[in-house]
């Protein structure tokens, strides 16, 4: 093998420059700016900027809604991640068994993937609307006085269902291809040894799906923490009121709606730390236990 050698040692760096500058301009610079402004109190128009140390962080945690928002974010993310993975896995395993009309069935399941989050939320609002929504009507007929937008729990319920619905197809596609990647010979050998299909699934199929599952776990946590923004925004109809929001949405509310840049930056810094911890945790602790082929 011929080893290619650059004439100048600086040349590789030059080739890396475009990529590096994009990373610096679009990721490190804004992050550094957010950290800087989290220590300042600034008027919206940028005329005066005062160093306030950790005041922004102190004010943030002393506000009653910040803790409530953090709690809601955790509950929301756990439920959305769990159910979008579980439902997708169930559907994928079922779809994998289908022989007749398999492609129609699969296409129908993937369909929702093409819908943008705000559109998904608009459809959701129509279904859950207190006065005219069929789902709300169904709950009301069952005796649950369902009230989208006025009752905190009911609004949270709608946000969670819409977020799961939107995410299931993505997971479904990955799980299905993961399932199809499991060699037929392994499955057949297992079928000879063990008659229970449930047990075969948990001992053979599920461990072999672990790499896909781990990848999807990260994707789904990120999705529920950050990408559900559009859904939440549409469900709130521009007025947060007494409805629950996630931490990311609160950064937007305080920074862009409330024009409190310092306070909003302090919240983004907390989010950055959270993401950092999550990433380290996932790759250090969980990945070791996942068997890639």
């Amino acid at each position: 093998m011929i080893k290619s050698q650059f004439k100048s040692p600086l040349f590789p760096y030059l080739l890396l420059l475009p990529q590096l500058s994009i990373v610096v301009i679009f990721f490190y610079w804004p992050a550094a700016e957010a950290i800087r402004s989290s220590f300042y109190l600034e008027d919206p128009f940028g005329f005066s900027s005062t160093f306030v140390g950790l005041d922004n962080f102190r004010d943030m945690v002393s506000r009653s809604d910040y803790v409530a928002t953090a709690e809601f974010t955790i509950i929301f993310s756990v439920i959305v991640t769990f159910f979008s993975l579980a439902i997708a896995l169930l559907l994928a395993v079922t779809a994998d068994r289908v022989l007749r009309g398999a492609s129609t069935y699969k296409t129908l399941l993937m369909w929702v993937y093409a819908i943008a989050p705000p559109v998904a939320a608009l459809i959701g609002i129509m279904m859950f609307d207190t006065l005219v929504g069929p789902i709300a009507g169904f709950f009301q007929a069952l005796g649950w006085n369902y009230q989208l937008g006025t009752n905190r729990f009911d609004t949270a319920f709608a946000m969670i269902v819409i977020s799961i619905w939107k995410q299931v197809p993505v997971n479904f596609i990955f799980f299905l291809s993961g399932l199809q990647g499991i060699p037929k010979s392994v499955q057949e050998a297992a079928a000879i040894d063990c008659a229970s299909s449930t047990r075969r699934f948990w001992t053979i199929t599920f461990p072999l799906l672990a790499p896909t599952g781990f990848f999807l776990l990260i994707i789904n946590i990120t999705y529920s923490l950050f990408d559900t923004f559009g859904i939440i925004d549409v469900v709130l109809k521009g007025e947060p009121g007494n409805n629950p929001v996630t931490l990311v949405y609160k950064v937007f509310l305080d920074g862009f709606r409330g024009n409190d840049l310092g306070g909003s930056s302090a919240q983004s810094v907390i989010l950055m730390i959270l993401v950092l911890i999550l990433t380290v945790f996932q790759f250090r602790l969980i990945e070791r236990r996942v068997h890639y082929n």
């Binding site: 006025t150 009121g241 007494n242 509310l253 305080d254 709606r257």
Partner: peptide, 20 residues
């Protein structure tokens, strides 16, 4: 910061009206 103050009012009024 009156936009935020109105948001606080809306939130708390919501809590009154929903009985929280």
């Amino acid at each position: 910061f009156y936009v935020q103050i109105r948001d606080v009012m809306n939130r708390e009024y919501g809590k009154i009206l929903s009985g929280e």
